[in-house]
Amino acid sequence: MSTASPGPQARESNVAYVVATGTDVGSRLARGLAYAGSRVAVLEESPADAPANGADAMVRYPTSFASRANVQRAFDSAAGTLGSPQLVLVSALPASLFVPTDSEGLTASEWATAVQGAAKTTLYCLQAAHSHMVKSGGGTIVCVGPSFALVGAGRLLGLSTVLEAQRALVKSAARQWGRHGIRAHWIALGAGANYPALQQVPLPNGPELGPPPPPLGRVPDFEHDVVDIAQFLASSAGRGLTGTSLVADGGDWMVP
């Protein structure tokens, strides 16, 4: 069986697009990428005040994620300014998904807006990323979400449904687009202090008895630890990986 070369993915433009909706996770990842030297397009609904550090490396694009056309336009604008992305990081979870709610209490409109909406936003971002990467010869897409999705949590039915769907969607993207040099991954982020909205939620403890810190002694932070992982995945060093789910929670869950 012949094997294809790694393809033009080796081109490393150091341009990253970060989709930052809902929580502040995307913004923090964008900041970390800017610190690390990437030129970053931040696609967000309501751009916050530019942070003092790293701001000069970031360009912010107000984006409505309600339709595929809107998301595509934002990606096209970013490409017009910064060029095609080497890395697209997607943090697309509305804040309402983090509000604990009994499944009985979920209304049809909440379900449609938050759950179906978040899944479709992810889909639109993948499609927009594909449209640019397929023309530029490849790239890496990374979706992120809290690690509890791997184990589930009561009263967060919508969030865990969306997260597991994202994970499967990313794998399908990896399967369909690998031939174009496009790689796709999902990173599970440790909750801890990283998700203030989850601090009042009785998430399952890790599998160890008692509540020890993660084996690494801390939950990896977004700005450095997670950004390093994403940059590795997007670099030529990560060319042999696609469709993976990486768990950046400091070693809590160690999934099979």
Partner: peptide, 28 residues
């Protein structure tokens, strides 16, 4: 839903979501 699908990605995504739905509803 576990391994993704080159064939029908929507089907895979929705079945992945079913897995998350199952785990969280079981806890609730």
């Amino acid at each position: 839903g576990l391994h993704g699908a080159g064939f029908n990605p929507v089907y895979a995504a929705l079945k992945g979501g079913v897995k998350g739905f199952t785990k969280s509803l079981a806890r609730e």
